[in-house]
Amino acid sequence: MSVRSVIGQAGVRLAQAVATPLVPEDYLDVFAPLHGSSLRARVVAVLPETGDAVTVVLHPGHGWAGHTPGQFVRLGVDVEGVRHWRSYSITSRPDERHLTITVRVQGTVSHYLAQSTRGTIVELQQAMGEFGIQSPAPAKALFVTAGSGITPVMGLLRAVRLADAVIVHSARTAQTVIFGGELRAMAAAGDLTLIEHHTAHAPRLVAADLPRLVPDISQRCAWVSGPNSLIDGIEQLYTDQGWAPPTIERFRARVADVGQGGSVEFARSGISADAPGDSALLDVGEAAGVLMPSGCRMGICFGCVLPLAEGSVRDLRDGTVTTAGHDEPVLIQTCINAAAGPCSLNI
């Protein structure tokens, strides 16, 4: 161990001894929020994209571990004093200094970000998600996207060179295609083949259209990003044809089975709430003011797992009912489970 690191460690320990019962980072929160007690980012710029979309350029603070192309990031902002979180696909390359996300302005967090100014501090979580391209990249690739589903694909296209890529993208009109100019320029330069589908003039894009639009579809590795209806149809097509399953990016957990709800007790918080059968317990808890752990909110990351002490819950994706045994709590993902009758969570 070097002298420098020994001195550094002694300094940290000294700072900790003075800061107790807090940690030194709690004091940095006051003066240097990007070096403070939680991971944060500073808004560098907000740039207009097409009509209702903006690109937000962020400078991530100390502790940001970087991302791989195709991943998403969760941003937390305080609106009317209450913290709200939302996930956004990262569209910048990993080697860029700043992090960019492109936001369709439609929810609480997106509105806040679109109206934010240079210097605004937002909460950040480390990048996550499995929507990547393996190395070496496949010889032939297909991307099927709709609406803001283009954003994670843009993160991939900007960062990874592909020999032969086809993009089938659905948007309402040519003008509402996010990154329309950049995609068309890439197509004109011969970097990719762009097939645009505009629903203002044609019926909605469905999986059955794909073999006609992309004749060599069976030879291509596929990535799909868009609304659940499109993804479900394409997954079915690939299963029926016996092709290798596509890589999927969902923006919302698929809700397949809704039953009767119940009352949920957040035992250690001393809070109870009515939990409708179609609401994830995570949302119910947050609305009731419980400090719920959370992650991807789509049933992927297990960041929201809590012990179910009593009662039953139903998995919103497939209807599976999980019941806590007597004195035997089971761990459940709160982001994709709803109450199935009265239940109690240990938080």
Binding site: P21, D26, D78, V82, R83, G289, L291
Partner: peptide, 20 residues
């Protein structure tokens, strides 16, 4: 007392706070 729990800020929350 949980007076600020509604902010959902883990840094100012009755379940995470420790005092002098």
């Amino acid at each position: 007392h949980g007076q600020w729990d509604w902010m959902r800020d883990p840094a100012i929350h009755s379940t995470t706070w420790e005092w002098d």
